[in-house]
Design a protein around this nucleic acid. Sequence first.
DNA 1: CGATTTGTTGACTCTAATCAAGCGTAGTGG
DNA 2: CCACTACGCTTGATTAGAGTCAACAAATCG
Lengths: 235, 235
Amino acid sequence: MHAQSTTSSERNISLRPLLPVPGAGLRTERALAHMLFGSVELAGIPLAYDRSAEIYGEGEAADYVYKVITGAVRTYKILNDGRRQINAFYLPGGIFGLELGPEHTLSAEAIVRSNIVMVKRSLVLSAAKRDGEIARQLWSMTASELEVARKHALLLVKSAQERVVAFLLEMSRRMAGTSSVELPMSRQDIADYLGLTIETVSRTLTQLEHTHTIELVASRVIALRNMPRLSLLNS
Amino acid sequence: MHAQSTTSSERNISLRPLLPVPGAGLRTERALAHMLFGSVELAGIPLAYDRSAEIYGEGEAADYVYKVITGAVRTYKILNDGRRQINAFYLPGGIFGLELGPEHTLSAEAIVRSNIVMVKRSLVLSAAKRDGEIARQLWSMTASELEVARKHALLLVKSAQERVVAFLLEMSRRMAGTSSVELPMSRQDIADYLGLTIETVSRTLTQLEHTHTIELVASRVIALRNMPRLSLLNS
DNA sequence: CGATTTGTTGACTCTAATCAAGCGTAGTGG
DNA sequence: CCACTACGCTTGATTAGAGTCAACAAATCG
């Protein structure tokens, strides 16, 4: 379904120092990125993935851990009835694909053309065996993912408006908190993340615009005009 | 709101060997229970908690890790609008309350009168520092919780019938797979776990009974009469 | 045993899904 | 340059499913 189109022309990026990207998600996530990807000997091959290119599929061998350098990634599951649930979005600096077991439990795709660094899971695991601090960082990463998953579950029992507002605030926070949010993902992606339909997402955004709470500058550029009101609606 | 009523009259249980209880949840969970609670020097004070007694509250210091010996436990959050989301149910053998950080991120209550063993978090953490295998077990426990949380999130985007069926099948599996499930929790608990109202849970159960898929032997005893059909509805 | 909690059922409402049409923008080719 | 197409997004009309409000039945507890 999705054309995989990684090029090998960008591998030279691997020689660049892999510093944490500014404005890139949770603080802990950043620290962990530094721990796992900071040292040259652990950092692996960077690749460019086209829009909608699959990075790995559910059930495949989890031989690598990934870090977003530029672009954005979604992880998801396809339900038996064909619907898709998106579990999380990863922005620059975000690490994904870390598994305790041998297989990926989710699929991952690039949302837009993205540069992704990989590091061999076996290297990470053996490093953790030698170094208790690295082992603790792995635990910490999984604990962060757990926190994210629980927050996500909390979202899914709220009203459509609450879900959309929570999504906007989360994105704003992760995009270094500017009042204007530039979304890399489509309405369908947002809907599949929030457990709604695209129509409901679209209608909710328009309604928020009518109440001067947000402004739809472009379909993927949303200005948060009334933060107090948004925080209230997020409740 | 909930009366805490732990008695100190049952502390003598602590001298009993703390073997894993049969028919008690996931296999990995059992192995971990053995790892953390198997050795006498780590096992702490067993306590009896009354029905609805709080074991710990969200935000409290996470000084202990807990294991259910008998009874059942729910972990939950109270939303700002007063609603309650139940994150998980723990049955005998189940371990809960393990945190990476210093505070509990959820609240925990006994569903029925339950015996719970506690072990000091500091002991677990220092053991993990010395022993890489224990460190790995901690990571593994959190990874299991992550899997549970993601499955829970998947549930919350399905129809009411699918949620109730999935709940029944999950409970049946965890109760050693007998065709008759004896639920320790109320309809309100089930509703708060599935993101539904008690009326919808009740109606869905009666509807499943009308189609001879289940039988409501008593309000908390449900016989699964047509497993193939249930599996189908679970899809 | 009465009292209180827990569970079921009914009538009605409301939110979000579905079905369907149309708009706007970007890319393509004459 | 302007059709022409394709895709993502919005908007409208209607429907379906779960929530709400209310009454009552059943089970449990003191």
